[in-house]
Design a protein around this nucleic acid. Structure first.
Length: 959
RNA sequence: GCGGGGGUAGCCAAGCCUGGUCAAAGGCGCAGGGCUUAGGACCCUGUCCCAUAGGGGUUCGUGGGUUCAAAUCCCACCCCCCGCACCA
């Protein structure tokens, strides 16, 4: 594959950078190091604009740090681990048309290669080759000598992962156990969210089985509310379905046939015999804890496919149950058939929970309020939810609940559950709260996976260390820190192994493969030494456990290890030093979706394995790219691969458009219109550079000091934003901020650019280099500069060039221009001449008074000013209030950006400032300007506008 | 449900932490003018309502509150987006 950018110079600079090896980073004790990385991407498709955004931010930051003089390491790798590619290959093998079309039309895979895509390893290799070209074409400043990909298809990656897992296990962070998953009986595999036709987001829930003694067996009723056992009046079963007697882990349960089948995925189950509902209905079973016999009754509300098909009835608090009672009472035929009339009449709801807002029988109230008559009414679902939540949060167990009386419902629930299990009268069962159907069309169940390996992220000590470290890390934006802390609290053990897909075999149990999120937590450490095997300085097989223990943990005798594996001990020492030179990672930049998983695991694993001083220092997080306001997805047809964006607009335009779209947690929105606009802007920038390159600069211009002062301020701000990873603000200022300064400058100097102007352009190029590096290099060479701007020194603000007075003087001219315009706008008639009156000298006292008032925070107390005016010039009595107000307003806006002494100094030079700008104003506005002082003898001022002149705000008369 | 983020003028999007410079940056779109053989690009101006003197009025999801002063702080409510475990 090749990518042709429409921008002819982009390819050239990629080549030159590579030839000059400016992004290859080796330890250099004389310079501070900076290790920045981005999460590698899964190689199941082309890189897209989403990757582009995160990676551009990372690259811009790497380039920024490099220009600041850091020895920057920005490495790259590829993630091959996982089951998804295998799934794609599988579907392709089965002749799935949609996947074929997607590969050809969206991912741009040549049709003749498709048959090879049935091999997952081919797929990942194919995309790696393609995406490497894209990464280069985007201008990412990568040290390619350190590249690798994951899985045991790679010569040494698995060595690293196996070393990592052995270390984790040694330190007690790995456990074995059982684990419920959503399972497709047909596919014989766990069904992830995106593999579902129905039931996205549904996960297994643990139900309590309440066991009602029935002969030598138990009717096992499944419930989420075991505390309601005190209000049980009867048991419901579905009269039209088959039940079975089954042995579950040695105990005999009566459950629906379907339930027994489902339990087989979770427990040791043997179905002993079939049980007809008719053999149960009308008989009694004994409720646990309260030892009360309750009748078994028929009800349509019972779904034999859900839970156990056995439900115990609490009509006071469960709307379904109360509706079941009503329905059964009115079902004459059923009552007669089973002879239940007397039993059913005796059933009365038993109130056991007190809850605000309801009487004794919340379920009865709800059912009656809604006028529900049958036990299959769909509104029962809603009523159940309402009461469930209300009772859970606010309910209290009543006096008739034994030792649980007075307890909150939420607390009682757990206690009752524990008690039932302890007494052997309770059990648990995993169930899906909603139906899940696999993409293959099969309804899913919960399976308990045995001998699953876990990373023990629930470990309180481990969590504590992670949290403590999180408090010390640099995290951008700041609000993500709290998010991380919440995630750490909430994190459970992580099932870290799989049976299928590409990956690394678990060293001590090769049945299993290390799962994809778990084999990508520590690999930044590998970057620090991967160049050694890559450059053949050490053989992959020589990266033994001993060697890795030495390099990463400093363990063992290096001479002995070296002898054992047959390498030079100095080489191992050098690797160890290089690791210690680069580590820890200074900054990792990622999209926010990785906060609750990858990034958290990343911290956990570093904390578990390395010394504290090697734990990650910084994390930067950003939003996720939308396309024209919509979420990007292949199925929506708005998927834009990076290669496509580069072909259409070029790399710099793509980078710039993305960077300008958002920062922090906001999601950037890619809009074609913005990309087109950006293309124009970049051209415009180059046009300016070319103009400057060919122009002969004059020695000095009137607004030089203004321009330089502005520039220093821009440098200061851009640097400040970049340090905080505010890439949008920084780039915006670097591009549009400097542009608008430049525009004003050229307007003011009327095209005669000075040497200072040229210096401005040079600095501008440097400030743009991290963001649009190709254009910056091109501009740099257009100016005739040698070397790469990519490794030029990042500008630092020069305090001595900051000139607040020059800025203020220029601002007064802008304000005057605006005022004149706004007057013209109101009178809607173009004047021929403008008279500007600079305030009389005595009024400067007014300015000083106003400044003092504002400094003291007494801006509203202008009475003093008014008095002062009247006492100085009694004849102005009528205007005093107005003048005072205007003066305060004007000063209060200026005092925000200028110091009082600037204001008074410039007030003393106003006349000269306006006079020197008169020609400029005339040419801008097309009217003649006359500048006068209010103090002049015989002043021409027919409308007495000079009266309202104030320091820093001249009077204006237009005629 | 739990957790995180957000609602700003025709659209996109700053500002909010650290109240006053905010009718509210910047970009797009639209309108007028300039440049140009023309188009594009570029430059200038305007773009909530009213106004023949730099002014006034009403705005920043909704409703309250704090304050001399609120887009900005506090409270309640409504709405939108994202993550939630095997999926990378």
């Amino acid at each position: 594959m090749e990518i042709r950018s429409p921008i002819d110079y982009e390819e050239k600079w990629v080549k030159r950078w590579r030839e000059a090896r400016i992004f290859e980073a080796d330890p250099d004790p004389s310079r501070p190091k900076y290790f920045i990385c981005v999460p590698y991407s899964y190689q199941n498709g082309p890189l897209h604009l989403g990757h582009g955004f995160t990676y551009t931010r990372g690259d811009a930051y790497a380039r920024f740090k490099r220009m600041q003089g850091y020895n920057v390491l920005f490495p790259w790798a590829w993630h091959w681990t996982g089951e998804a590619v295998a799934g794609t290959s599988e579907r392709l093998k089965r002749g799935d048309e949609s996947i074929r079309r997607m590969l050809i039309e969206i991912d741009g895979v040549p049709e003749e290669l498709l048959e090879k895509f049935t091999d997952p390893a081919f797929v990942t290799r194919y995309y790696t080759e393609e995406n490497r070209i894209v990464v280069d074409a985007m201008g990412f400043s990568v040290d390619w000598r350190r590249e690798f990909y994951t899985t045991d298809l790679h010569p040494y990656y698995s060595k690293f992962i196996q070393w990592q897992f052995i270390t984790l296990k040694k330190r007690g962070y790995v456990a074995i156990g059982r684990h419920p998953v959503v399972w497709c009986p047909r596919c014989k595999s766990a069904t992830g969210d995106h593999d579902r036709l129905v039931g996205e987001g549904v996960s297994p829930e643990e139900f309590v089985l309440v066991l009602f003694k029935f002969g030598d067996a138990y009717l096992a009723a499944a419930t989420l509310r075991p505390e309601t056992i005190f209000g049980v009046t009867n048991i419901w079963i579905n009269p039209n379905h088959e039940y079975v007697l089954a042995e579950v882990d040695g105990r005999k349960y009566i459950v629906s046939k379907r339930a027994a089948e489902k339990l087989m995925e979770q427990r040791k189950v043997k179905i002993l015999e079939s049980v007809r509902p008719d053999d149960l209905i009308g008989k009694y079973a004994e409720a646990p804890l309260i030892g009360k016999p309750v009748p078994i009754l028929p009800a349509d509300l019972v779904d034999p496919n859900f839970g156990t098909g056995v439900v115990y009835s609490v009509p006071a608090h469960a709307p379904y149950d109360y509706a079941g009672v009503i329905a059964l009472r009115s079902n004459e035929e059923r009552l007669r058939r089973y002879g239940l009339k007397e039993i059913v009449e005796k059933i009365e709801p038993i109130s056991i929970i007190r809850v605000p807002g309801y009487g004794d029988y919340p379920a009865v109230e709800e059912v009656e309020r809604l006028g529900i008559k049958t036990d299959t009414d769909p509104r029962l679902e809603e009523a159940t939810k309402t009461i469930y939540s209300k009772e859970f949060h606010e309910g209290v167990m009543k006096e008739n609940c034994g030792e649980y009386s007075g307890m909150g419902v939420n607390e009682a629930r757990d206690s009752v559950k524990a008690k039932l299990i302890e007494l052997g009268l309770g059990d648990t069962m995993w169930e899906l709260p909603e139906k899940v159907i696999c993409r293959c069309g099969t309804e899913n169940v919960v399976k308990i996976v045995e001998n699953q390996w876990f990373l023990r992220y629930s470990d309180p000590e481990w969590k504590e260390k992670v949290k403590k470290h999180l408090m010390r890390m640099e995290i951008y934006p700041e609000e993500v820190r709290q998010w991380f802390l919440n995630v750490v609290d909430w994190l459970r053990d992580w099932a870290c192994t799989r049976k299928t897909g590409l990956g690394t075999k678990l060293p001590w149990d090769p049945e299993w493969i290390v799962e994809t999120l778990s084999d990508s937590t520590l690999y930044p450490a590998l970057y620090t030494i991967s160049k050694y095997p890559n450059l053949n300085l050490i053989k992959p097989e020589q990266l033994t456990l001993d060697v890795l223990n030495y390099v990463f943990l400093g363990l063992g005798d290096v001479e002995e290890i070296a002898r054992k594996v047959g390498v030079d001990a100095d080489l191992l020492r050098k690797m160890r030093e290089e690791f210690l030179y680069w580590y820890p990672v200074d900054m990792r930049i990622s999209a926010k979706e990785l906060v609750p998983n990858h990034l958290t695991f990343y911290i956990f694993n570093h904390v578990a394995i390395f010394d504290e001083k090697l734990w990650p220092r910084g994390i930067g997080v950003n939003g996720m790219v939308n396309i024209e306001g919509e979420k990007m997805s292949k199925s929506k047809g708005n998927f834009i691969p990076l290669k496509e964006a580069i072909r259409r607009y070029g790399a710099d335009v793509t980078r710039a458009t993305l960077l300008l779209a958002a920062e922090d947690l906001d999601d950037p929105d890619w809009r074609e219109r913005n990309a087109i606009e950006m293309k124009n802007m970049i051209n415009q920038f180059l046009r300016i550079v070319r103009e400057i390159a060919s122009a002969k600069p004059i020695e000095k211009s009137a607004v030089d000091s203004w321009l330089m002062s502005r520039l220093q301020r821009r440098i200061e701000n851009i640097t400040k934003w970049m340090e905080k990873l505010k890439t949008r603000k920084a780039f915006h200022d670097a591009l549009y901020g400097l542009y608008s300064d430049w525009r004003w400058y050229t307007r003011r100097v009327g095209g005669s650019i000075s040497k200072v102007g040229r210096e401005f352009i040079e600095t501008w190029i440097k400030l743009l280099a991290p963001f649009i590096p190709f254009t910056a290099e091109e501009a740099w060479s257009i100016l005739g500069k040698s070397g790469f701007v990519s490794v030029e020194k990042w500008p630092t603000p020069r305090k001595e060039l900051m000139d607040a007075e020059a800025e203020l003087a220029e601002e007064l001219i802008m304000r005057l221009m605006e005022d004149v315009r706004s007057i013209i706008n109101v009178v809607k008639e173009k004047p021929r001449k403008a008279y500007v009156y600079v305030a009389s000298g005595w009024k400067r006292g007014l300015l000083e008074k106003a400044i003092n008032l504002l400094k003291e925070g007494r801006g509203r107390e202008m009475g003093e000013l008014i008095k002062w005016i009247i006492s100085s010039k009694p004849e102005l009595k009528r205007h005093a209030a107005n003048l005072a107000k205007l003066q305060i307003e004007n000063v209060s806006s200026l005092i925000q950006s200028y110091r009082p002494e600037n204001l008074t100094a410039i007030a003393g030079r106003e006349l000269e400032i306006y006079k020197s700008a008169a020609d400029f104003l005339t040419s801008e506005l097309g009217i003649e300007f006359e500048i006068h002082s209010e103090d002049e003898e015989g002043l021409y001022d027919p409308k007495r506008k000079a009266l309202s002149a104030l320091p820093l705000r001249p009077g204006i008369y237009l005629e």
